[in-house]
Computed example of a mutant assay.
Amino acid sequence: MSAPATTPPSLRKTRGSGERSPRSIAFAIVLWACLVVAVLFLLTLIVTTLVDGWDRLDSRLFTEYPSSRPQEAGARPAILGSIWVVGTTAVLTIPIGVAAAVYLEEFADRNTWYNRIIELNIQNLAAVPAIIYGMLALGILTLFGVQQKNIVIGAALALTLLILPVVIIATRESIRAVPREIRDGSLALGATPWQTTWRQVLPAAVPGIATGSILALSRALGEAAPLLLLGALTFVSFDPNGLLSGYTTMPIQIFGWTARPQAAFHELAAATSILLLALLLAMNGLAIYIRNHFQKRW
């Protein structure tokens, strides 16, 4: 008569362990409670902002300049300033970020000490607070003898330093997701490594690169701290017209209006916040569309 089969000790389930243990259930309840509380606070904030600023979300917000009289004020310079600053940031960030990611992922020797240091610094810089990049940009402008710090190119420099690590990391992940077989097939047909990267790898990685770049630029659009450190103006009554022009952005304009005691300025700040939120949601929606529509399944 054969002995009954016994379960190995490593496979035996102890009482109170696993996903249904009291501790696991209590931890899951706490997590869901935190999520519900955070969502409720977010919804309350969004609804309150919509209620406060809906009446001022009209054409005056887009066409009028800031004024001491809130009924005549608008956010035209802030809207144009945001376009100038974020557009310049995109021109500076995307080519440098993509080029750095291509070098590190396709051509760099990962065994050399300086490449390992570069990769470590890129990963660490992605978590540095935004205000630090404002201080770094301020130091760079001072080093080059720029007297007027509150200019479009200075703001773009600070935001470029802020989102460049994010763009590099997102681009590297997109390049890494391209199957190795595509590279091997291109090289087997006689293409050089650069031709393979330019004509095969980069086109296949464009959806991920575009998604990461748009999300990084949406973060730059909502930043105010590094720009305030550079002396960005909170009251601008002119349209920015170049890289050396003074400017303000929507987050800075919101900051300036919320500091005023009049309730009408708070309504203006709420209306501008609605516009900024709509732009951020549109950019994130565009990133999701690009990812879902153009991403290839290997």
Rank of each mutant, 00 (worst) to 15 (best):
L80E: 10
Y289C: 11
G81H: 05
A3L: 13
L189S: 03
A271C: 02
A156W: 09
T192P: 14
F107W: 14
I175N: 04
I274K: 02
I79C: 13
Y247I: 15
N115W: 08
R291F: 06
A26T: 02
W84E: 04
G222V: 11
V86N: 10
I163F: 04
A170H: 04
V236T: 08
V37K: 10
G74E: 11
E105K: 00
P203S: 03
P251F: 10
T160Q: 01
V85S: 07
V128Y: 10
L31K: 05
I79F: 02
I96F: 11
L159C: 10
T160L: 11
D52T: 05
A278P: 00
V37W: 05
L141C: 02
Q295Y: 03
T196I: 07
T192G: 12
W113R: 13
S174F: 11
G212R: 05
I288N: 05
I122K: 10
V146P: 04
L92K: 11
L45D: 12
G134Y: 08
F107P: 06
T44K: 05
Q195K: 12
I182T: 04
C34M: 06
F255P: 02
L136F: 12
E105Y: 05
S21D: 15
V166Q: 13
I79H: 03
L277T: 07
W194C: 06
E267L: 03
N124E: 11
M1F: 12
V39H: 08
L125H: 07
Q147M: 03
A269K: 03
P179W: 00
S273L: 11
V36I: 15
N115V: 15
G185T: 13
V98C: 02
P9A: 14
F144Q: 09
R15G: 06
M1T: 06
S17F: 03
T44V: 13
P70L: 12
T196Q: 01
L230D: 01
A38K: 11
D58S: 07
A73N: 02
Q253Y: 13
F144C: 02
F62M: 10
V206T: 15
P226C: 10
V166T: 07
P66C: 14
R291K: 14
I25W: 05
P179T: 09
A3E: 12
I29T: 10
L286I: 14
G256K: 14
A73G: 10
F62T: 11
V206G: 04
R56K: 14
L80H: 02
D239K: 06
T196F: 06
A278Q: 00
V102Q: 07
A3M: 15
E223N: 12
A26S: 03
R116P: 02
L11W: 14
A278H: 01
H293F: 06
V236E: 02
